[in-house]
């Protein structure tokens, strides 16, 4: 298990949009090391090598809905819950990175 560095945690924090200061980063790096150390023992389950992964506890397939329009929510009710709204839209601060 590679020791988790502050830089690694900083990268993870940016990926997950968490503004953390250096002391928080260091704290998390230490805790992550301990936790990963513990969960790393999962690699000891060597007989897992040739079994299929389970993604759904109870296997079901082809669950779909007919293409039928259902009522939407009332916009005023929706926007009332928003931190900021303008002209029937959600207002957000300026966007920097463009996907």
């Amino acid at each position: 298990m590679p020791e988790i560095t502050r830089e690694q945690v900083a990268h993870l924090a940016r990926l997950s949009r968490l503004a953390l200061d250096d002391s928080e980063l260091d704290g998390l790096a230490a805790q992550l090391d301990v936790i990963l150390g513990a969960v790393a023992q999962i690699s000891a389950a060597t007989d897992a090598a040739d079994v299929p992964p389970t993604t759904h506890a109870v296997p079901v397939e082809n669950v779909t809905r007919p293409d039928v329009v259902a009522p939407s929510l009332d916009r005023d009710e929706v926007l009332a819950a928003a931190p900021a709204a303008e002209d029937g839209r959600f207002r957000v601060p300026r966007i920097l990175d463009v996907e």
Binding site: R65, D67, V68, V69, A70, P71, S72, L73, R75, V78, L79, D87, G88, R89, F90
Partner: peptide
């Protein structure tokens, strides 16, 4: 007629945020 994962109307040009529900929001 409806969205990929919910029943909201897909008609183009509706007033903003009038075709939304818990799923697509």
């Amino acid at each position: 007629a409806s969205k990929m994962f919910c029943g909201c109307d897909t008609t183009f040009g509706a007033a903003p945020n009038t075709h939304t529900c818990p799923v697509c929001l």
